[in-house]
Every structure is written in C-alpha cells, then in structure tokens.
Design a binder for these strands. Structure first.
Lengths: 111, 111
DNA sequence: ACTCCAACTGACAATTTTGTCAGTGCTACT
DNA sequence: AGTAGCACTGACAAAATTGTCAGTTGGAGT
C-alpha cells in the first residue's frame, strides 16, 4: 500500500480544534451565534469566566479572523464582538459539535 | 426577555470538545476513521507522538466510551483500538472538523 | 542465555493554560 | 469631588497538560 496523505500533512481536525479550543472559546462562540454582544454582556452571560480570560480568548479569536471587534464611536466606551463572515463558516461546525454534545449529555449526565 | 437556556445549562459545544481535545486526540481519531489499528501502528503513523501520550489519550477515549481496546488472544501481545459504535456517532463531527480544517489551511497556510 | 519487541506504567520535569489581583484611562452619575 | 462602570493590561501564581526517561511483563528469535 502507498503512503497515505495522512502521514505527510498536518491533521485538519487539529487545525480546526486549534482555532476553537481553549477553556472558554466554545462557550463564547455559542453565545455569539445569536448575534453580536458587548464585552460586558458576554461576561455577565458566562458567570464563571474572568474578565482576563474572556478578553484573552476574544483577542485570540479576533486574531484568527473569526471574530471582529467593533468599537462604537462615541461617548462611553462600547465594544461589540461578532463573528466575521469567515467566522460564520464555522457555524455548521459549531452546530454539529453542539448537537453531539447534547446527545452525549443525555447519555452520560455526569459531564 | 426571558433567561435563555444558555445561562443555566452547560455549553454542549464544550461537552463535545472535552471528549475530543487533547494535543493528539484529533490525530488519533483521524487515523482510526479508516479502521482499527494496533498500538504500534498508531505510534508509527504519528511520528511526533510519544508512546506515553499515545497510551494516555487512548485510555482517555476508551474511558469515554468512544474507543475500544481489543486484545487479540494468543501468542505475542497484540492490541487493536477501534471506534466503538458510540464513537462512530462522532464521525459526522470529525468530518465537519476535517473539512473546515482543510479550507482553513488553504486560506491560511501558516497553521 | 541474551537480546528484542510490543504494550504498558510510574516518577518527575518542562511547558502551556488558567486564574488572581491590582491598576490604567475615560465617561457618567450624584 | 467621589464613586462607579466599561474595556483592557501586566505581573505573577496555580493548575493542567505534555514530555522525558527508566522500568515491567511476557513471548520470540538466535
């Protein structure tokens, strides 16, 4: 048998996971699926996260091109984060992760 | 507006990710998509992995119910790992991760 | 007998990821 | 003037994940 492509190329599964993982990235993306949110809204909607980690993950994902930061012009500082068009290409991925997760929870509620 | 379900339940995306992630799990699963493999075959097909880490991830995933260990009866010790029926429910998830990863590589070959 | 291989384990170090805590700049409210 | 909120950063500690290295068991090969 020939040498499969798998042995010479990086694993595409890992490529995707490297964009998506991190303790809170899944949760953040899950929130943003419903639309843009402000920094503080995100923080309040994820009570266990610390501000530090939220910001860190937001920056990671912004750097990866899947989120964008909108700073509303004007008075008090208001920043909204949303999926970029490129980030929206992840929606099917997230949906599939989400539904498998739900099934898994039914099967094994310990998680 | 009411309290969304998101604020009171664990994130199902994270549930899935917790099963799938770890430095080498994606790669291992990718190999096993093509069928059962022996411990050493896996090891050779992933040159950068250490034996220790391979075994550790295999045990994690076996414990999570997505892989199974078959010890062939008999003479030299031969162990094969394969996806369980339950683990096969992950195939669509892995496929989607895989194809997004491939697209991402085209776009951003630095990964 | 000696060496090798396959599968596996344990002690421990290095690295990476998270978390804690304090602090900045700017605006709004009273 | 004092307090509070928002977005954010840096220094550093704690914890989790990976990696290194040596060692075990049992059969096979010479």
């Amino acid at each position: 048998m020939g040498v499969s492509k798998k042995e010479i190329s990086p694993c595409p599964i890992d490529v995707t996971l490297s964009v998506i993982d991190g303790r809170w990235k899944g949760t953040i993306l899950w929130r943003l699926l419903d639309g843009p949110m402000r920094t503080n809204e995100l923080r309040k909607s994820i009570p266990e996260i610390t501000e530090r980690m939220l910001l860190r993950h937001l920056r990671d994902m912004t750097g990866a091109g899947i989120l964008e930061r909108h700073q509303e012009q004007g008075l008090p500082l208001r920043v909204r984060y949303s999926l970029t068009p490129y980030g929206r290409t992840l929606v099917p991925v997230l949906d599939v992760l989400c539904s498998w997760g739900r099934e898994h929870l039914k099967r094994d509620p310990s998680t």
